[in-house]
Design a protein around this nucleic acid. Structure first.
Lengths: 226, 226, 226, 226
DNA sequence: ATTTAAGCGAGACGGTACGTCTCGTCTTCTT
DNA sequence: AAGAAGACGAGACGTACCGTCTCGCTTAAAT
């Protein structure tokens, strides 16, 4: 039932400049505008108020342009998170797991609070409950990348002998879960006390060998100064 | 041309007994039908396919009836979870925290898998990301009740001296987070190994005093230094 | 991938009164508003500028309301035409076919020009080229009703002996075709000369017996006064 | 995440010979491919399924190439019709108007049915209801050419004295209208009876002088009274 | 015994987002 | 300079669900 409307005539509409195609390839300006609009919208309204329509409206973009490059909302959320993350968190290496965890978590929660990334992550998790596709993206595309940093921290702790290698993955999951619960219940305010306690508990769960004296049961593989 | 419907006539539709009002008070039959429909829908389609319209359709109920008693979807999710939970999980008391946790978690995950409650919980968490109201319901109406059981387990462990009282809340959060991550990423299959490892780690994090040598409820709580 | 946006909050929008439901039955106010908007839109922009979205916008109606009662654009076009037609054309009965046709055609073309009905009819024919459903509506729902008047005129002429009964349907088609060509090529201005010539030709094609003297070659079937 | 396409690579798609430019002039191969694709598409899907995008896809052509040479859909329809028409209908000259009309109409309807031209004509008329530009093309570029043949037939009939010269244009319009109504309502099947009846009526409307007793072009025109 | 009051099924209502389609324009690269 | 390619902004398509509303009915409690 499609028929020849005549939308060729621009007949007013919006004031703007009309960001046209730059040829048969992706227009970075459009990408920037779309990601920026998505980020702002997440920050303002959260998952509830997020819609592709509104992103398109704010970005001055056509919906097909959005769907062309980010076929699902999950893809957009991931892209927003990744773009923010570019200027994000340093992986601490203090030589002490508890300190590393504590520092990293404080930085991460601040990052979540102060950029749209916390909202993007929350939205991604919510979306994954509604869409199998989003679940796959979360598990296979998002989490491995995002957990790499914390993984390093735990790996170094293993190398230092602070925790047993066999326990590292489970400890990581426990610590991740701690993050998720706080993020998903809206409690990622600066709670130094709690964060440091959780870090200490993780270390103790992993065996608790002091990092300072080097592990007695394993050759320390890290950079040695002797 | 203009009358494709015949709203005046009852015109069948569903089986047609028409569950009417029973007076100026809540009709338990309607409540049962609605919760049953919601539960079935969650089980079949999950959060994605859940809609009040569809619940009303399946329950043979009017939408206002649903909104009257469960003003938001979160309320429905909570009600579905609570109804399932009625015939649910015993709180273990083996005298050993690791065993308690392990037993409880296996029972909980099985409960989540085999009833609609896993889906209901996932839906509730997702909904809480979209609606401040749902977030409040989650934090204030749902979690305290649901965490009571696990809280007991930890409390008893404190009383047995297995873990430090000061650490109990944080340990609880770590363990909850472990549940959430697995539920929200769809990994609550029967993974005995992982569950027991996590339980052991929690105990060790809490101080790791052996439960065997302690008479239940007799050992003074708190970290021992002997 | 549906999820719980929170559109319940009206959060501004338009100024208006919000024409709500009046219960589980059709709201005449909504119908009036929609048909009026459709009529105006057809008059202003014609088939090219006609869209359900725009009708909904102007009528302050929801799109589903429109689709509920007029499942296709063809249905809307027909309804617009029928509503206009209500206050429309008298069927002439001068006792002379040529005069009847001439009078009727002039009135019809004026009606087409001065209401939106010409545009509606053109749109319906165009739509029928694009949609089998519209074609069926045109053939089975629209034309029989609309041709009834002219059919009467021809039937009376047969009864008067002006034209042969066997030729009446074909003559009707020839005359209808004359209308269509002029409507579809935008030439339904007041062309008295042409209209009267066509009417005369039709009469002559039908046998041309003068109406006054009764037909000599056939028994007059009409009311006889002898 | 952000690169679901690989627009740099040619990545097949269609057969892939890549019909390049042949210099600063129109490439006949492109023209052929485009018209062929348009014809096939009209035959398959009709006006509803016709889109420039799809024509470009099937023809392996760029959209700007199509717009360059056929700025509107109407132009494409006309070109398709004209290309088909090239090998089309002989103008009959039997010396008898009724026979001429009957033969011509049967040939024309068969031509419309068996090529894409019927669809193209229908599409052109529909398009003309939506676009003033198409209407102009229909009236000024298409119809005069297409009516020339039938015009000849009527002219010869005038010369033979079968019909009055003054009536010829109106008769032509009546007969054209008959064609349009049947084309636009999808009733151009082989209906010998109807076609011949219409032809007879047209002749009678034009004066009905028998062509048999008249030497072609010799008999004085006008109605005879002997 | 009648009135009042509330629950109930039904479904229409105005909105709005969904993801897809086509429009006509634009730019780049290739020939 | 023509041609293929395809991205781009725009916006319509028809459907789904949102939460609210008004209806007509039924039943129980208050008069």
């Amino acid at each position: 039932m499609s028929e020849p409307r005549n939308p060729g005539a621009p007949e007013a509409g919006h004031t703007g400049h009309r960001r046209a195609s730059i040829g048969a390839r992706r227009n970075p300006a459009a990408e920037t505008a779309i990601l920026g609009a998505a980020r702002a919208l997440l920050a303002e309204k959260g998952y509830a108020g997020f819609s592709i329509d509104e992103v398109a409206r704010r970005a001055g973009a056509g919906k097909p342009t959005i769907y062309r490059w980010w076929p699902s909302k999950a893809d957009l959320f991931i892209a927003v998170y990744a773009a923010d993350k570019a200027a994000a968190i340093a992986v601490p290496d203090t030589g002490d797991l508890a300190a590393d965890l504590s520092v990293y978590t404080k930085a991460l929660w601040r990052f979540w609070r102060e950029t749209s990334s916390g909202a993007a992550f929350r939205a991604l998790i919510a979306e994954a409950q509604a869409s199998e596709q989003a679940m796959i993206a979360l598990r296979e595309k998002f989490l491995p990348v995002r957990l790499a940093d914390l993984g390093c921290v735990f790996t170094r702790a293993v190398e230092r002998g602070e925790i047993a290698a066999a326990d590292a993955p489970a400890l990581l999951q426990l610590y991740i879960g701690f993050h998720w619960v706080h993020l998903l219940t809206g409690r990622i305010a600066e709670e130094t006390e709690l964060i440091e306690q959780a870090a200490r508990l993780i270390v103790r769960a992993g065996g608790g060998a002091p990092a300072t004296a080097a592990a007695p049961t394993a050759t320390p593989p890290g950079p040695r100064h002797d």
